[in-house]
Simulated scan of single mutants.
Amino acid sequence: MRRITPDQVNDFARMMGGDRNDPASVRRRIEALEAVLERAFIVPGINRPIGLDAIVGLIPVVGDLLAALMSAYVIWEARNLGMSKWHLARMGANTLVDTAIGAIPLVGDLFDFAFRSNTRNLRIVRRHLDRHHPSSAVIEGEITGRAR
């Protein structure tokens, strides 16, 4: 197994559109992950979006743990932004509730469909970014400001 160096990670982050800790880049990564986890597909007939979180949650135990790991990435990115322990704890609680109830057969699958922990966590991160890093705000796909 080949090991990836920190320089390779930084090169990949620059290639993907920014420094790995740049608030605008973090916002883009978190928004993209939230879209995949919560709204990647539309359920025919009811026109309700679902994502990988609900789909992999159908796999007993392993699916819920995998979804929790993907959700933990959002919390890790938030920690790298320097968010407060209170906000990180709220995000962790959202993920924990989603994982714990999501592990219950049938009831948990319906809960995953309704309780969107990643969307809630994205909302917390956006509020932080809008308050502390306003240059990362995006309007219709365009970054409104640049870091000084």
Rank of each mutant, 00 (worst) to 15 (best):
106 L>D: 01
48 R>T: 08
105 P>R: 05
94 N>S: 09
78 A>Q: 02
50 I>T: 14
103 A>E: 00
60 P>T: 06
76 W>S: 08
51 G>C: 03
90 R>V: 15
86 W>I: 12
103 A>R: 01
87 H>E: 11
38 E>M: 09
71 S>N: 14
75 I>E: 03
69 L>H: 03
66 L>N: 04
111 F>G: 05
100 A>D: 01
105 P>N: 06
50 I>L: 13
84 S>Q: 01
109 D>C: 09
107 V>H: 00
80 N>W: 04
72 A>I: 09
86 W>S: 13
85 K>M: 08
85 K>C: 02
51 G>Y: 09
99 T>R: 00
41 F>Q: 07
104 I>R: 04
71 S>Y: 13
67 A>G: 11
78 A>D: 00
69 L>E: 06
102 G>A: 07
41 F>L: 10
61 V>S: 11
86 W>V: 13
58 L>P: 00
53 D>R: 15
77 E>F: 09
43 V>C: 09
86 W>C: 01
99 T>W: 11
54 A>C: 14
53 D>N: 13
53 D>I: 08
64 D>N: 15
79 R>N: 10
83 M>C: 08
69 L>T: 11
40 A>I: 00
80 N>M: 13
93 A>C: 11
87 H>F: 06
50 I>C: 10
99 T>E: 00
58 L>S: 13
86 W>R: 12
85 K>G: 13
41 F>V: 10
101 I>N: 03
49 P>D: 07
61 V>H: 02
64 D>M: 13
62 V>F: 15
110 L>D: 00
53 D>P: 06
72 A>C: 06
79 R>I: 06
97 V>L: 07
79 R>Y: 10
66 L>F: 13
49 P>G: 07
71 S>P: 02
57 G>Y: 03
103 A>V: 05
65 L>P: 01
64 D>F: 05
55 I>L: 15
82 G>N: 05
103 A>N: 06
71 S>T: 09
84 S>D: 02
40 A>K: 09
54 A>G: 06
65 L>R: 04
62 V>Q: 04
38 E>V: 11
67 A>F: 14
109 D>A: 10
79 R>V: 05
68 A>C: 12
56 V>D: 04
47 N>I: 07
70 M>Q: 12
109 D>V: 08
98 D>V: 01
80 N>Q: 11
47 N>P: 01
89 A>D: 08
98 D>W: 02
96 L>T: 14
42 I>D: 10
44 P>E: 01
100 A>K: 05
80 N>S: 12
97 V>Q: 02
97 V>W: 04
39 R>G: 07
45 G>Q: 10
59 I>A: 12
57 G>Q: 08
66 L>A: 15
55 I>G: 09
91 M>S: 04
45 G>S: 06
102 G>P: 09
76 W>E: 12
61 V>G: 06
83 M>T: 02
71 S>I: 10
88 L>V: 03
88 L>F: 02
50 I>W: 12
84 S>V: 03
48 R>K: 14
90 R>M: 13
41 F>D: 08
52 L>A: 13
101 I>S: 00
56 V>M: 14
93 A>K: 04
72 A>P: 04
65 L>G: 15
101 I>F: 05
40 A>T: 02
61 V>W: 14
84 S>E: 04
101 I>A: 03
113 F>L: 15
68 A>D: 03
